[in-house]
Design a protein around this nucleic acid. Structure first.
Ligand SMILES: Nc1ncnc2c1ncn2[C@H]1C[C@H](O)[C@@H](COP(=O)(O)OP(=O)(O)OP(=O)(O)O)O1
Length: 619
DNA sequence: CATAGTATCAC
RNA sequence: AUUGUGAUACUAUG
């Protein structure tokens, strides 16, 4: 019954393993059994997993900042010898000893209390990502359907859509808002490891690695850490979901899951059954440590709150935050969930009530204040170019804000309060640059949004182009969609649904696939004894991908035995010379034609022209 | 049709 | 200076 896999040799083999793991795990879950995966460490520490891990996290913003040692992604991984780096990561896997975390305190929005981050060193981030790559497909299918935080292809809007859906379908209006106090800091290591085992991670070496990861101490402090998962660790969010999964299962076992099993029974029978049982209705929607539970009466809400409190304390050693955990009748008062205010009002619908959502008042107010400051700051721009850059920055902020709160039914009304104030401030700031009131559909920036508005906004004109400060009023409600459970990154169908939903966006699946093939192919071509940096390896693959595997001189397919990557300009400084833009795929023969001085016009004008143009760029 | 950079948000 | 997971939007380049 236990599952073992060969280590992946290529990235598409890794993907296949991930898909297979997901399938096995999902199948066991259907039959209410837990899967059993062994020999995971071999997969986790294989070349292609390490490569994928580095590829995944190398462009994180935080990769530029070191952990407790002084190492950064760029200097100590990407610009080092390829095999040296691989060897170093593999070495770290045997007898794993994480470096201490760097402690940084950041502000929590709207609170005086600070958030304590624990930042792992770069090498430990790579290790964590390797583990995550393999554990995620195993754990993902076992998670609760209506847990939305930290999970792929799910977001806060879907959680909100689920709340609306349940309220509308059931007509229930008593809600518990729950928040777990200091969630990550309170995660108990041995309970967590038991849960991982219970979910099918049956490789003790991997569990040991996770254990030592969690125990990593903090720089400047003595000893190891016996409680909590670091805020800043790459696997911490995944582990957090593992930890609370039993909570989800426990709550939903008694009502939500029972109910779905009876869905095929005839209606009368189901209703009768529910009334006669002493079960209390409960619909849970969870986002990380933030959850709501929907039920039908105040009494039941209180009962559930009491029972949940006891469960969390007894089984998970967690506490509910007293001030943030409230019981509310959403016909009378709003609840706050995921940055939205949520309530129902009388209206035309099956239940006689319709939902009303608004952006959280306090949060939107502080954001608008920030934007107001930025707009006033526009007048300090030192040149027209900088001004345009700053306007774009402001526009980005406004669009970003609207983008998130679009899911609120009352977005337009809520944001319009601030509209005039911001517009007037923009006009005043732009005045000294010749700013004028301009119809939105006549400016040249953000055309896709502005073309449908005739309202006046403040805009400047530069070289015949009109650049306007967008309005916070250019927003309209966009109904959030419910999550399709079959949409997952680990099945072909799931990926298809995802790419359909995200419209004409590039097909992520296929892109990754081709990239992966080429990555591993290139690795197979060997190293020739020369010093190649890690970055060069990745970038060769990207360049090959961009050129679609064709020679840039003769446009024919290149096979691995006569593949060469031409440095378009060899004289560039060392950190630029290996960038994708400076690499061109070609045959070795074609390459030698660039560097010789002979006339090759006999091969046809197209080829000759390409050769000449590459020769020009050499110096 | 691809990659890379900025921004917003949730936790 | 500020880490992480996830989502979204815009812009730029070949
Ligand atoms: N910026 C962040 N970086 C890393 N992890 C984060 C970040 N924000 C939130 N998290 C994770 C760690 C938190 O324990 C968890 C829940 O967040 P949150 O509820 O805001 O705070 P908290 O549970 O740590 O304290 P409390 O709820 O008592 O204020 O999500």
């Amino acid at each position: 019954m236990a599952q073992k896999f060969d280590s992946p040799k290529t990235e598409s083999e890794l993907r296949l393993i991930q898909d297979t793991m997901f399938n096995i795990s999902a199948a066991s879950y259907e039959y209410r059994r837990s899967p059993s995966f062994k020999g995971l460490l071999e997969i986790i520490s294989s070349d292609s997993v390490i490569l994928t891990a580095i590829h995944n996290i190398k462009s994180n913003k935080g990769s530029q900042t070191p952990g407790s040692d002084k190492e950064t992604m760029k200097e100590d991984i990407l610009q080092r010898d390829f095999n040296l780096v691989l060897g170093r990561v593999k070495e770290a896997f045997s007898n794993y000893r994480p470096r201490p975390l760097r402690r940084v305190s950041i502000n929590k929005p709207g609170k005086t209390e600070k958030r304590q981050l624990g930042i792992p060193s770069v090498i430990d981030r790579i290790i964590q990502e390797c583990v995550r790559l393999v554990l995620d497909p195993i754990l993902e299918p076992q998670f609760f359907q209506h847990s939305y935080g930290f999970r792929p292809m799910r977001d806060a809007h879907m959680a909100l859509a689920r709340v609306t859906d349940v309220v509308h379908k059931t007509g229930h209006h008593w809600i518990i808002e729950g928040d777990i106090s200091k969630f990550f800091e309170r995660v108990n290591h041995s309970i967590l490891l038991r849960k991982l085992w219970g979910m099918g991670i049956h490789d003790r070496r991997v569990l040991m690695i996770i254990k030592t990861m969690l125990q990593a101490g903090v720089i400047g402090e003595t000893g190891t850490n016996d409680l909590g998962a670091p805020q800043g660790g790459i696997i911490s969010p995944l582990l957090a979901n593992v930890y609370l999964n039993s909570f989800d299962q426990w709550v939903t076992r008694e009502w939500e899951n029972k109910k779905t099993q009876k869905v095929y029974r005839n209606r009368k029978k189901t209703v009768a059954l529910r009334e006669s049982s002493n079960l209390k209705p409960a619909y849970l929607i969870r986002y990380a440590d933030d959850w709501v539970l929907i039920t039908n009466s105040k009494r039941n809400a209180e009962k559930w709150k009491y029972r949940i409190c006891k469960f969390l304390k007894g089984n998970l050693k967690l506490e509910l935050s007293e001030e943030k955990t409230k019981i509310t009748n959403i016909k009378r008062k709003t609840i706050r969930f995921l940055g939205f205010e949520y309530k129902v009002t009388k209206g035309r619908s099956r239940t006689g009530y319709i939902t009303r959502t608004k952006p959280d008042r306090d949060r939107i107010a502080t954001k608008v204040k920030e934007i107001h400051r930025d707009i006033k700051h526009l007048r300090a721009a030192s040149s027209m170019e900088f001004l345009i850059h700053d306007i774009n920055l402001v526009n980005n902020k406004i669009r970003g804000l609207i983008n998130y709160y679009q899911a609120a039914t009352w977005i337009n009304i809520s944001l319009s309060i601030f509209k005039e104030r911001l517009k007037y401030a923009s006009y005043k700031s732009l005045l000294k640059f010749g700013g004028k009131w301009t119809r939105a559909n006549q400016v040249n920036n953000l055309i896709s949004i502005h073309e449908s508005y005739t309202e006046h906004i403040a805009a400047i004109e530069y070289k015949g182009l009109k650049v306007g400060v967008t309005s916070i009023g250019f927003s309209k409600w966009n109904k959030a969609m419910l999550k399709k459970p079959s949409e997952t990154p680990y099945t072909p169908e799931g990926r298809q649904i995802y790419s359909n939903r995200t419209a004409k966006k590039p097909l992520k699946a296929r892109a990754d696939d081709t990239l992966s093939e080429h990555l591993s192919m290139l690795i197979a071509t060997g190293i020739n004894g020369r010093l190649y940096t890690f970055e060069y390896y990745l970038n060769r693959a990207y360049a090959f991908n961009r050129d679609k595997g064709k020679c840039r001189i003769c446009r024919k397919e290149v096979h691995r035995y006569d593949l060469h990557f031409h440095h378009i300009n060899k004289m560039l400084p060392s950190d630029l010379v290996n960038k994708v833009g400076n690499l061109a795929t070609m045959h070795m023969k074609c390459h030698s034609m660039i560097h010789s001085k002979l006339d090759y016009s006999e091969f046809g004008t197209k080829i000759w022209k390409s050769i000449l143009s590459f020769r020009e760029k050499l110096n």
